[in-house]
Design a binder for these strands. Structure first.
Lengths: 216, 216
DNA sequence: TCAAAATTTGACCGTTTGGAAAAAATTGGC
DNA sequence: GCCAATTTTTTCCAAACGGTCAAATTTTGA
């Protein structure tokens, strides 16, 4: 009898399901949902298609599981930003954690990007539920820091967007980044350079200014 | 006899091909290449599948044409950044043009993003050809501005990446942006807010500083 | 007006794909 | 060593899809 509706029972099932999810992450993140076939995933996982379908009842189901897991990972770093810490250090810390994620979990980043790009059909509920609440909460923290004059006054929501954008860019647009940097600067050091840049960049952008000179 | 290899001959052909490309942009940008079918595109263009295939010899060919056109549009705004202008005004101007593109050409942005996300199979040559050359050229301009002390010293390439990332984010991650901002702030005004934020943000980040206080 | 060229349609084809069914093989407890 | 549950493989299917082809229709130009 097929499993997959109830949680995995045996250790073997858990391990095989893990193997499939690992393979599926490879395939999905590279080719998108529609661009990936069950056969590809099965081969990458070292098993036959019907065998894979014994562990997951459909391609959709694999994808859904993958996305659900991803979301937890994705929210964690923002959650971690602490109201009581030093504002600039906390924000920079968040930026660094996000860059590390782009470096270490590029497949997850691309899977997420693909989902957003196509209208978030399987994520919508979570976006204007959990995510919105978390961002609103953290935006308030940023706002307090701004009102206390500890960082520059900027739209907190868009500030968070800018962090997402600049950091995830290094995973999602990796091909472009590497092409533009070329063989000398586009190697393994690019994440180090990116981190340095973003740190300087955000330190500058967040420095509160006594007198305003931001008008054109 | 089918056309499509040689350029369009009559005005009717040109108009029909245009119609198809317009429909294809809708479909491709929403569903990705593999996720789109010729039937969908044909229906959106108001014609039958064989009729569409009379104007373009394959799905691949439509996509290729679309991508090629897109690239010209995509490079134009950076080209426009002028060495002889005021550095901050020039950079901010570039940011504004990019944001306008995210607002007015979101389908093109998503088509491009999708291409990058999946490894730029049909764009690679142009990335480390034309694009790299252009970026290198403009990075040099930025470097000169920095050396003259007119803007803060930052890695010029990564500075350009940050502009791409922050602006394109509003097209590519539109669903997420709208969900997080909610119904009140996520309406039509979001691009206006984004523009204001990014302007302030870049003005801050680029302001050169006499004394260094960027270390942790 | 009429023939040639261009365009549109309908019917069709081979392949790929997601998935089902059932038999065969393996494993685990006694 | 044997039975039952689990896992794997073989075979197959129906729908979707990219694309072809020839016939029918419309348009164009002399």
């Amino acid at each position: 009898m097929a499993i997959s509706e109830t949680g995995p029972k045996t250790r073997i099932q858990a391990r095989k399901r893990e193997l499939i999810l690992e393979a599926a992450l490879d395939i999905f993140s590279e080719n998108g949902f529609r661009g990936s076939t069950i056969d590809q995933i099965a081969e990458a996982a070292g098993m036959s298609k019907p065998n894979l379908l014994y562990y997951f009842r459909s391609k959709e189901h694999i994808h859904e599981t993958l996305i659900h897991r991803l979301l937890e990972t994705w929210l964690a770093p923002l959650e971690h930003m602490n109201e009581d810490g030093d504002p600039v250090a906390e924000i920079i810390g968040y930026v660094r954690r996000k860059i590390e994620m782009s470096r270490d979990l590029p497949r997850e980043s691309r899977l997420f990007a693909n989902e957003m790009l196509h209208g978030a059909p399987r994520t919508m509920a979570m976006l204007d539920g959990e995510l919105k609440e978390l961002v609103d909460k953290k935006a308030l923290v940023l706002k307090h820091w701004m009102e206390a004059g500890r960082i520059a006054t900027l739209d907190p929501w868009h500030l968070i967007f800018s962090i997402w954008a600049t950091t995830q860019h290094y995973a999602d647009f990796d091909v472009q980044v590497r092409a533009v940097l070329g063989s000398t600067r586009g190697g393994d050091g690019r994440f180090h350079d990116a981190t340095n840049f973003l740190q300087q960049f955000y330190v500058n952008a967040l420095r509160p200014q006594g007198k305003d000179n931001s008008n054109t």
